[in-house]
Design a protein around this nucleic acid. Structure first.
Length: 378
RNA sequence: GUGGGUGUAGCUCAGUUGGCAGAGCACCAGGUUGUGGCCCUGGGAGUCGUGGGUUCAAGUCCCAUCACUCACC
């Protein structure tokens, strides 16, 4: 098999774990954060800059790439890797969440998701088979099953119906994946069930029987309170097989990454570091800072004096503020380099702490630094 | 020189029969969780060109004046 997951180390008093995920295009050391490259690019960054920031694997989107440029174009390059010049692993989202969050006039049926494109209004039917076929065309290292994501709050009946449909769709995804790839690429199942423990259990059991190479928790970070998200992760992550990678989709803040790693999550993705970089918010161990703040006007120091990213090694807060206020393109690039570096470095620190048996200490220090930073307001 | 137009927030401009001074942008401060380089929330900010007059009350009506601008001499 072209993919495997090996546990390397486990934290003693938390559920945090470090692992090694072998994939078609290389090895990923977990816990890991995957920068989001929706349209075949992590916005503002070249693949070289991504690698410099420490990216081991990135995320692409079936929904977006299917609509534009379309599979005919990707086929010319035998997949997304060569199209975008990225030779490390890629995970692709199935399109389920995008149909939920972006498309208009969506109609979910047993067959699939009938939706209207957010680009040109054209209608499309995304079936589980179609989603997997597109992801095979992209030659993703990790394919995700098509799932139905529901809003928060949702009635139990709605959550139950959605998870059961997600299970039936997962069977169809698995069948297509086995027939068309011979299990060469990895396919992950997605646990749904809203904020209901019994439903999460039902979903995890049904998907667990299908023996996927990995599992994800979907339907989180859709507007629920933070504590609720932690609670769901707390009871749902142990429901997933421990010998498989566990991925929490669409999460989160640096604090979320630490807290969810402590609860046993191995993989994350989130638009936050890249989108917020383009919106002037920069991450540091002492909390976020808004580079537009007037107090940085004459600040000759770097964003974070302990950060060794390209941006912090070469540019001042005053310059980054100026670039942002001037709407200069370099602003997006330098800010994104820093935020992605910060996120990936945080994951690396956690990994090393787990392997050194010091994760609890790391976690305490992380929260203390954050609290102190907020008190000092940088 | 003659006739007309315009002067209100940093900018562009609304402002009703005279009744608490407004908007957009900009600026300032928050937010942003499987991405539309967006979007959302809040805030500070004005001697209404200037000086008189009428009126209980004037950005608004009257007189004078200044600046800018257009047309014609």
């Amino acid at each position: 098999m072209a993919h495997s997951f090996t546990l390397v180390s486990k934290s003693e008093n938390t559920k945090a774990r470090a692992g090694k995920l072998e994939l078609l295009h290389g090895t990923v050391h977990t816990p890991i954060f995957m920068p989001v490259g929706t349209l075949g690019t992590v916005k503002a960054l070249s693949p070289e800059e991504l690698k410099d920031a420490g990216a081991q694997i990135i995320l692409g989107n079936t929904y977006h790439l299917y609509l534009r440029p379309g599979t005919e174009v990707i086929d010319l390059f035998s997949g997304l890797h060569r199209f975008m010049n990225w030779d490390r692993p890629i995970l692709t989202d199935s399109g389920g969440f995008q149909v939920f969050s972006l498309a208009k006039l969506t109609k979910i049926t047993e067959e699939g998701a009938n939706f209207q494109s957010h680009i040109d209004g054209s209608r499309h039917l995304l079936t589980p088979e179609k989603s997997v076929e597109v992801q095979i065309c992209l030659d993703s290292d990790i394919l995700m099953c098509l799932d139905q994501c529901i809003p928060y709050p949702a009635e139990e009946k709605q959550a139950k119906d959605a998870l059961e449909l997600t299970t039936r769709w997962a069977r169809r995804c698995k069948k297509t994946w086995e027939e068309k790839t011979g299990r060469k690429n990895a396919l992950f199942g997605i646990v749904q069930g809203g904020m209901y423990e019994n439903l999460r259990r039902q979903s995890a059991e049904q998907l667990g029987e299908m023996d996927f190479p990995g599992y994800a928790l979907g339907g989180l970070s859709v507007g629920e309170p933070k504590e609720m998200m932690y609670d769901v992760a707390e009871y749902a992550l142990p429901l997933l097989p421990d010998d498989k990678p566990k991925y929490i989709m669409g999460v989160g803040t640096p604090e979320d990454l630490v807290e969810l790693t402590a609860r046993g999550a191995d993989m994350f993705d989130c638009v936050m570091p890249s989108r917020n970089a383009r919106n002037a918010q920069l991450f540091t161990p002492c909390g976020t800072l808004n580079i537009t703040n007037a107090r940085f006007r004459s600040d000759t120091g770097p964003v974070d004096s302990n950060c060794n990213c390209y941006t912090c090694r070469n540019y001042s807060r005053a310059y980054l503020r100026h670039l942002y206020l001037s709407r200069e393109l370099l602003s997006y690039r330098l800010n994104t380099i820093h935020n992605i570096h910060y996120y990936l470095n945080l994951m690396k620190d956690m990994r090393e702490a787990i392997c050194a048996g010091e994760f609890e200490h790391f976690r305490k220090k992380f929260h203390a630094d954050l609290k102190e930073g907020k008190n000092n307001e940088h």
